[in-house]
Nucleic acid binder design. Structure first.
Lengths: 118, 118
DNA sequence: TCATTTTGTTTCGCGGCCGAAACGGCGCAG
DNA sequence: CTGCGCCGTTTCGGCCGCGAAACAAAATGA
């Protein structure tokens, strides 16, 4: 997985452009970082943990979870062991969104392959 | 330049995370797309052209240029030939920003190389 | 029991971005 | 010269995210 600076920039541009053109939920860069942390890092995920990981305040995480929760990308659940904690959980829709993002990146990194997937 | 879906997502996550942690100007995804279009597509660039390319309204471009212009990433100049047009020009600072983004992507795509570049 | 700490949420004031529409400057055809 | 169309900007009302601080609920320890 080697690439030139020009290739890297073109990849970033193409993906950003596709995401702007698409009419899906337009998440900020922070929200993207939060969402991918949830889906890539091993659980459990808490508000406090995510805030520390991104070096942002807790309300930022709460608001992002509100927005993405309304989109159905994540879910919140009280921790039964310590009811102060909130466990952030993945959803089918969120996993689908992440998969589509991965597909988009791969598509833009390997342009003009023959058989376009459905 | 081949990668697995997991690698693609990790790359996107790491770059987004680095950009969130960094204290540089935090641009929206639209602004990133506009900036990279300016720096990757051949000039000249006009408000109308960028609006059509991103399929957004013209005020979106004007506002993005206001913001990025205040950051010194782009400049506007009247077209002397047709004074209705505005030519968007690149700046040294903008080129530097784009280069740093490319470096970041490359760094995150080739993790843990031995000699870290200065 | 009760004060203290921890966790996540909410409130507050502020600023930025949004789309639609109105606006002013400019070119062009007649 | 004059009316019409194009280009970019500005205005309008509204929505969303921000950080700091106040807040409610739950656990902890004496």
């Amino acid at each position: 997985m080697a690439m030139t600076p020009a290739q890297a920039l073109k990849l970033w541009h193409d993906v950003a452009l596709s995401r702007v053109l698409a009419d899906g939920p337009d998440l900020s860069e922070r929200q993207i970082a939060i969402l991918l942390s949830i889906y890539l890092d091993p659980p459990p995920h808490t508000v406090r943990g995510l805030a520390a990981r991104l070096n942002v305040t807790k309300p930022v995480i709460t608001r992002a979870l509100d927005t993405m929760g309304a989109e159905g990308l994540v879910t919140r659940k009280r921790d039964p062991a310590d009811r102060r904690n909130v466990i952030i959980q993945r959803t089918v829709k969120g996993a689908l969104f992440v998969d589509e993002l991965a597909d988009l990146i791969l598509e833009k990194s390997a342009p003009a392959r023959a058989g376009a997937p459905s």
